[in-house]
Design a protein around this nucleic acid. Structure first.
Length: 416
DNA sequence: TCTGGGGTCCTAGGACCC
DNA sequence: TCTGGGGTCCTAGGACCC
């Protein structure tokens, strides 16, 4: 088996640079929604010591002093660039998995392939020339090792962005990799491993299966096997059906009153519902949650799951259920900073297992609801988001709306 | 003053059943 | 007073990922 992982470098920043070529070689960062945290950094920004996930307000002065270009997150742009990147990659293999917006695993066990590293260099070059996005590629016999190889390709300039572990001394390589850098081993796990004296990927690989199973569940065992070169994590070519859809946002300013929360929650349902229907799905349950800030005072984060009588894709029913749930969990006197909705128990729309005793009227109503929502979606697509929406959302001032003050311009210009 | 959003998987424990 | 054992299903919460 031969896997390649292709990982776009500083992806969001690289996307912003497509629209602003003048920013090449300059420090650039992209902020999370609400302009809260740093979620992408150019190499120059990393060199300035700006950490990943750092709250922007903590480095705002530094950014200003060094003339760092700052962008709000622009997902429409990133998704379009991602689509183009994946289209290029798919030309190089029959089997590939789009792992995230900026990463893909490729099956390079191609019989006729004489020099995989040279092949990968070709992929890298094409991405740069045709799209303008720099990437790193790692090659190995398992996905977990390919991830590590790609990391090395990214960090070590001598590799020219491509690194293969095939035929290499794995002991020596894994010895230098901190265990926390391994795919699937997060912060908590790293802390706990450190207490057992395990600090390198090699030590983890050589731990006993029983011990790994006990402390880190089956996934820990799989990770160790993958480091041993035994592939446990398969390539997932087809998108598996989505199991949940969520929409949530932090508020621009904290909210205490139920009315504002209702507006926010209804807005989230509308956005999640749109995605639900665009995939031809219906939800049987939904969860509503609101929360105070994790960073001050006691966290108050109530949530409730609402079950529907039947799977639905109708905004009317979803909004109603969500608002009922909200009323149940709401308590006055708290400064809420976030609200959200998750649609659950998804299944194909239209093939509800109708109860034996469903009246004809009920089925007719469902049919009408679907037709209505289809019409609403079409109008919104044609005339713009929010043209048709629940009356609740046509409101006046909304101070709590998230901020995104540094949004880049449209994505048509500048994109080849 | 200001701290992201959207996912998946795994497990423990409770509820329920016979 | 003493009060089984084994199975399934569901859910909440934790951990991880990008």
């Amino acid at each position: 088996m031969r896997f390649a992982l292709c990982d776009c470098n500083n992806f969001f920043v690289s996307c912003e640079r497509l629209l602003r070529p003048d920013l090449a070689g300059k420090p650039v960062i992209v902020l999370s929604c609400n302009d809260g945290c740093v979620i992408s950094r150019s190499n120059e920004a990393k060199a300035l010591g700006i950490p990943m996930a750092e709250p922007f307000f903590k480095i705002a002065a530094l950014a200003k002093a060094h003339d760092v270009a700052v962008f709000s997150t622009n997902f429409a742009l990133y998704h379009e660039v991602s689509r183009r990147v994946m289209a290029v990659l798919s030309r190089y293999t029959d089997r590939m998995e789009t792992y995230s917006v900026d990463e893909a695993f490729l099956d390079l066990s191609i019989a006729s392939l004489a020099d995989p590293v040279e092949y990968a260099r070709g992929i890298r070059r094409t991405l740069l020339e045709e799209i303008g996005i720099p990437a790193s590629i790692g090659i190995a016999s398992t996905k977990t090792l390919a991830k590590l190889a790609a990391d090395r390709g990214k960090k070590d300039p001598e590799t020219g962005g491509v690194f293969s572990l095939e035929g290499l001394d794995l002991d020596a390589f894994l010895e230098k990799v901190p265990v926390g850098d391994v795919w699937g081993i997060g912060r908590r796990c790293t802390e706990s491993l450190s207490r057992s004296g395990i600090r390198t990927a090699r030590q983890f690989r050589d731990a006993k299966d029983d011990w790994l199973r006990l402390h880190f569940s089956v996934r820990g065992v799989h990770t160790a096997w993958e480091l041993r070169g035994i592939s446990c994590i398969r390539l997932v070519e087809e998108d598996p059906a989505q199991k949940s859809i969520q929409a949530s946002r932090s508020f621009g300013t904290p909210v205490t009153d139920l009315e504002s929360l209702k507006e926010a929650v209804a807005g989230h349902v509308v956005s999640a519902g749109e995605r639900l229907r665009s995939q031809g799905l219906a939800a049987r349950a939904l969860q509503v949650y609101i929360s105070t800030s994790r960073f001050r005072g006691n966290l108050f984060a109530p949530a409730v799951t609402m079950k529907m009588d039947a799977p639905t894709s109708s905004n009317l029913i979803l909004v109603k259920a969500a608002l009922e749930g909200l009323e149940r969990i709401y308590a006055p006197g708290h400064a809420f900073t976030k609200a959200g909705v998750t649609l659950l128990e998804l299944g194909p729309d239209g093939v509800t297992q109708q109860g034996l005793f469903d009246e004809e009227g009920v089925q007719l109503k469902r049919k009408k609801d679907r037709a209505l929502m289809a019409a609403v979606d079409e109008v919104n697509r044609a005339l713009g988001e929010g043209t048709l929406q629940p009356a609740l959302l046509f409101s006046k001032e909304r101070e709590w709306e998230p901020k995104h003050e540094k949004l880049s311009d449209g994505l048509e210009e500048g994109l080849r």
